[in-house]
Every structure is written in C-alpha cells, then in structure tokens.
C-alpha cells in the first residue's frame, strides 16, 4: 500500500479533546432545533448522523473502509420494526433487539472480513451486504418490496407515549447525544488510541505487541452495533422498515456523509449527514438529479476537498492558533 492514509485531519487528544464548548453548542442545537425545523426532518438527520458517526469509528479512527454498512442499518431496522409490530414489544425493547441483531451480524461478518485489508476489505464487506440485501428481499418477515409498514411507536417503558413527533424527537435527541458522547469517550480511551495506532501504522502496532486483529474486530462490532441502534430508531421514527436501508447505495451514502463532513473528525460525520439529508430533501422533486449531485460531491471531495468541512475548519483553526 502506498503512503498517506485516508484520514489525516484528526487533532491530537490534547488539542481536540479538552474543550467542552462544542458539546454545549451541540446540546443547544438539539434543544432549539425543533422550534426552527420540522421535527421529522430533524429526526431523520439525527438517525443518519448517528449512522455516520458509527461508520466513522471504522473509517476515520481505524482506517478501514467498509462498503457494507447498509446491512447493519437495514437488518436492525427490520428487526426492531418486526419486534414492535408483530411481537408488540415496547420501543426500548424493540430498539434493543434491533441493535443486538446488528451486533450479532457485525460479529459474523467482522470475523469473516477483518483479516483482509484496504480495497479487499471494502469489496468483501460490500459483497456480504449484498447477500444480506437478497436475504431481506426474499425472507417472509421483511415484506419484500413493501417492507414493514405502519410500525407502532408505542410507549417508552410502557409509560410515555411516543406517538407525537415532539415526544419522539426528545427521545431521539437524547439517545443521539448519549451515543455521541460515548463515541467521543471511546475514541479518546486507550482502546481508541490503539485503533489510531493501527490506522497510522499497523505493522508497528503489531510489533508493539497489540493483537491488532482483535482490536479491529472490536471496532467493527462496535461500529455495526451503533449503526444498528441508528437503524432501529429510524424504523420507529418513520414507522417503516424498507429495502432502501439495505441497498448498497445506502452503504455509499454513509461514506459520502463522512467524507464530506470530514473523515476522522468527531463532528464531521454528523455535519456531513445534515448536509446530505437536507440536500436530498430539497432535491427530492428533481428525481435522478439527486444521484448526479451526490456523485459530483463525491468527485469534488475526493479530488479537492479531502479534509471535509469540519476537517478544513479544524485545519485553519489550528493554523491560526499556531500563529
């Protein structure tokens, strides 16, 4: 493999980790958000932001490009929809079930793929995701082309009804904030440091005595699990689980969000997700032009804007700090 790994814009924990301010701003945005923007749109963006942040654990902090993350999003979304609708579970149990399914799937696929590297890894995860896609297309419980429709949101712990969009939004926002903090903590833990060592120089990490494969597998499972959490919640928000979430285009979309926002930054994937989701919202009437615009953003990011939005902002901020 050649020089310069995919991600390079992350700052050292000393400069990037100490500030509390971004998190306060994030919390403020989450609180003010619904009074400015339609809550269903916000929830959609938050689900995708969670998805992209989970994905970034792998691409940004471990240096592994998975092209099959739709498998986890989709399977979790089907599982939680099925649990809520057919088994009548309460939302938190349905979400927990969907997340567990994604975790199990992540463990199996991870064990099969983690030994491969770079392009091979991307290719193989993609093929496995496609296998999951065909499974979902044919299995009975997914409802084939129709998906699982009118999934009940139910009542949280059997007490608080999530029927209104505002109640649902509060729930989604809280889960998102906790997940976000958790990812931040993990990235800055000793475990996260080892992942970064693997990303920067795998051979060296091995020679230092780290069992690199186990670390990579752990990161993969973690990423799959949190992706599953996003998918499970998404199914309840839209009261729908459909094939869209399992397609390889979805796997590509999360790569795009992460790349646009800034690979290997904490906030980047969330920003990227917001930009892409709003773009799709505004361009929805233009049909296939959405694909063209997405493709063009991809090409532009790769050719000229590899740091992404947050990565670029960090870069200029650090440069100014250094004078």
């Amino acid at each position: 493999m050649s020089a310069q790994p995919v991600s390079h814009s992350v700052s050292s924990p000393a400069s990037g980790g100490s500030s509390l301010l971004p998190f306060v701003v994030l919390a403020a945005c989450l609180i003010i958000g619904p009074s400015l923007i339609y809550p269903v749109f916000l929830m959609k963006a938050l689900c995708f932001a969670m998805f992209a942040c989970a994905f970034n654990i792998l691409l940004g902090f471990t240096g592994l490009l998975s092209f099959g993350h739709a498998a986890f999003l989709g399977m979790a979304s089907y599982s939680s929809a099925h649990a809520a609708k057919v088994w009548g579970l309460t939302p938190e149990l349905a979400i927990a079930f969907g997340t567990l399914v994604a975790m199990a799937l992540g463990t199996v696929i991870g064990m099969l793929t983690i030994r491969s590297r770079g392009i091979y890894f991307a290719n193989i995860t993609l093929a496995f995701a496609q296998m999951v896609f065909f499974f979902c297309l044919q299995a009975k419980f997914t409802g084939g082309e129709d998906g699982i429709q009118s999934v009940p949101r139910g009542s949280l712990f059997g007490l608080i009804s999530l029927k209104s969009d505002m109640a649902m939004y509060v729930f989604v926002a809280v889960v998102f904030f906790i997940t976000f903090l958790m990812i931040y903590r993990i990235i800055h833990s000793p475990f996260g440091q080892v992942l970064r060592a693997v990303r920067e120089n795998e051979a060296r990490a091995i020679s230092l005595g780290y069992k690199v494969e186990q670390y990579k597998l752990a990161a993969f499972i973690l990423s799959a699990t949190l992706t599953g959490l996003a998918g499970s919640i998404k199914a309840l928000v839209f009261q729908l689980a459909s094939l869209t979430d399992v397609t390889w285009q979805m796997s590509g979309e999360v790569v795009l969000m992460t790349l646009l926002g800034g690979v290997g930054t904490i906030f980047g994937p969330a920003v990227g997700a917001f930009v892409i989701v709003s773009m799709e919202n505004y361009l929805a009437e233009l049909g296939s032009w959405v694909l063209v615009v997405q493709g063009a953003i991809f090409v532009l990011c790769v050719m000229t804007f590899r740091r992404g939005i947050v990565g670029t902002a960090n870069y200029y901020w650090n440069k100014r700090q250094q004078g």
């Binding site: 392009i119 063209v292 493709g295 090409v299 790769v302």
Partner: peptide, 22 residues
C-alpha cells in the same frame, strides 16, 4: 490520486458511477 491511498480511487470511481447512472 496515484500518490494517495488507493481507497480514494475507489471513492472517485464510485462517485463517477453515481453521476453516469443518474
């Protein structure tokens, strides 16, 4: 993109595929 990680090549061609198909 030759001097960068080969994954960028993959991402570029993915973007082009979206453009053409769209």
């Amino acid at each position: 993109l030759r001097d960068l990680d080969h994954l960028y090549g993959l991402l570029l061609t993915f973007g082009l595929a979206l453009i053409f198909e769209g």
